[in-house]
Design a protein around this nucleic acid. Sequence first.
DNA 1: TAAAAATACTCCATAGGTATTTTAT
DNA 2: ATAAAATACCTATGGAGTATTTTTA
Lengths: 137, 137
Amino acid sequence: MEIRQFKTLVAIADFGSFAAAADAVGLTQSAISLQIKNLEDELGFELFDRRHRPPMLNNKGVLLVEHARTIVTTCDLVARLGSNDDLKGTLTFGAVPTALAGIVPEALATLRAQHPNLHISVKSGLSFELAGLVRGG
Amino acid sequence: MEIRQFKTLVAIADFGSFAAAADAVGLTQSAISLQIKNLEDELGFELFDRRHRPPMLNNKGVLLVEHARTIVTTCDLVARLGSNDDLKGTLTFGAVPTALAGIVPEALATLRAQHPNLHISVKSGLSFELAGLVRGG
DNA sequence: TAAAAATACTCCATAGGTATTTTAT
DNA sequence: ATAAAATACCTATGGAGTATTTTTA
């Protein structure tokens, strides 16, 4: 289980195909294919329905994407711990209900504690709805 | 940033020293030392106060341990998704006629295929009627 | 002075790339 | 017929081990 695999999985969910995700994360399609295969092998179950092209997330896949988002988000947060320069302005982000009820509150508290001058706005919605909002700016 | 580094970090926090953590995660002390060094290099700040022996978590280190716990916990959760037993019991849900004729049949088929032990009951009705049923339990 | 961590080096596992084949639309 | 994923093969990066040196309690 590697963070890079989770980032890839999230990218696939957000961009709709292995190839598009490859482009998004700056790797080749075959690398993405292998990452997912290895992840599936390690977990012991499939994440995609391969009878479709591009492969479609199955229900366990969808579930896993949510957890992957948690992990990737936390990593991003961690990566920003170094820059002490205080953030200002407004941050808007979306979260699926599972995340909202899960890690978001605590993450929000941490974020607020570290950046008192940052105004935070949270949108709730399902993955595809959020993706739409992002596309629309 | 690697999951293994976060596991190691948590182990150090829990066991009190690099050497003890090495033992806990089944690696050598030098491997632990390198993992932490690489993590610190990537993040751009130190996690430990080296003037103590064993090194002591500094305040950023303590903060990071919390995030590391989030990540490690989520990974453990993910690893257990495979052994998730099938849903049992009864699921009752309502659908408006349009949905009943549209996406419901296929969704139902999928759901039945994935959870053979789940009994599914469907109520038909208009939105406000269904809302009433939900309120009434 | 005795622990624990850091360093130097070596080896090997594996992630990713290129090229190709397979598959679903 | 075409676009996308899977597969095969190769290379190089870096993670972990052993042995040793440095450090602080």
